[in-house]
Design a protein around this nucleic acid. Sequence first.
DNA 1: GGCTTTCTGTGCGTCCAATCACAATTCGGG
DNA 2: CCCGAATTGTGATTGGACGCACAGAAAGCC
Lengths: 230, 230
Amino acid sequence: MAVHTLLLQQFPLLKTLSAEALVHLAPLASVREFAKREMVLTKGPPVPFLCFLLEGRLQAIDFTVEGREVGLYFVEQGDYFGELSMIDGESQPEYLISTGRTQVVLLPGAEIRPVLFSNPQLAETLTRRLAQRVRHQLTQRQVLGLSNPLHRICAQLQIMISSPPGNAPQTHVIRAPTHQELAIMVNLTRETVTRTFQVLQAQGVLVRQGDNLVVDKPKLDQLAAKGEEK
Amino acid sequence: MAVHTLLLQQFPLLKTLSAEALVHLAPLASVREFAKREMVLTKGPPVPFLCFLLEGRLQAIDFTVEGREVGLYFVEQGDYFGELSMIDGESQPEYLISTGRTQVVLLPGAEIRPVLFSNPQLAETLTRRLAQRVRHQLTQRQVLGLSNPLHRICAQLQIMISSPPGNAPQTHVIRAPTHQELAIMVNLTRETVTRTFQVLQAQGVLVRQGDNLVVDKPKLDQLAAKGEEK
DNA sequence: GGCTTTCTGTGCGTCCAATCACAATTCGGG
DNA sequence: CCCGAATTGTGATTGGACGCACAGAAAGCC
């Protein structure tokens, strides 16, 4: 319990909050640490918190009746999650898994909820973020329509490197996801991702540097576009 | 241009609107008819309308770089669509196609937008609907994780029969989609859907009655659950 | 009522990603 | 720094959906 107001202010969603509101909220917030592969949120009952990712990366996943993992989206630093329960009071629709060591800030729903909806500006940011999520899911769905594994992986990489918007350099660096993490995002097996990565590295699209993945955007785009004619 | 206020009142979103607001809006609204396969909304520039489906069914689709159709979701009678532009001012992310003869009511964005965001109750319904859409897309994504065509089709049918919530009778009737329409929703070819439908009809899960499809829910659920082990 | 067009049904060959079963490597923790 | 676990790499096999090419059926249209 109790975190510094400066910490809360770092999150885009809370930026517009008044100083008093922050002082009110800070003592009620808490920070939790998670190890790699640990479950951050469980599918099921409504989440009584609004959650912010302070450090690391999460993956939202679910399972099919067959027991196969399905990757839904990634949560990056500074983003919030588990907000659907907050909005409609329904249950949490997916699992959230820590992909490494992570830190999460929890704000009790009972406290933040009234603030969210009474402050029109906040409500609008929340709604816009929701809209953005819908858009994101739509492009993600598109990727699955690609018939070829190479295409799907390229498209997924394009999505992942575009997450921090703004400038568009030639090469992008992202925290490397495991092959398995990628595989479930694009409906492939781990093995197929491994094999496809070889191709990408051979073509100079990808270079692995420790924990990071260096991506050559132009080459990637070219490869993603290639094979347009069926 | 100009429709009756009673017509607008039929739409759940506008139910809570005051009589004056409706009188103000009605003369600005217009109704358009679309033939089968006609394009209702084009992917691209922001949509300057909030659109309501008065009659028929639409399918939201997009295309991959390979030129393959991807099915995103269906819009059923009484629902609204094209609201994303309304919310964030960004471009329209998908095409909307008429799956039959349809009627659409168009409300000029410039007129409805201020109403939407100034009326807190309306804003909340809008946000809740967005949240619902996110949830829907998540379960839709799940379906694509199923490895088996039969499973995917069953899961898709389960989604489609659950759209009008409430009672849960044994058999449900839905306006039959074409095999092609279904195929692009679950990443299959039209042929595979045709062949799978034979199986479903043989098992008594499905019966075709003219334009309608009669579905035996218990049998469907059973089939969808079967093969849980792998 | 005859026409076109869209939709549905079916056979067959091809191909490629899944699957399985290991080996090799890297990572992380004590 | 060493050990166990997680991740990555690789080969062989095979199943099953795709794609193509039609034929038949049904639905719109003038």
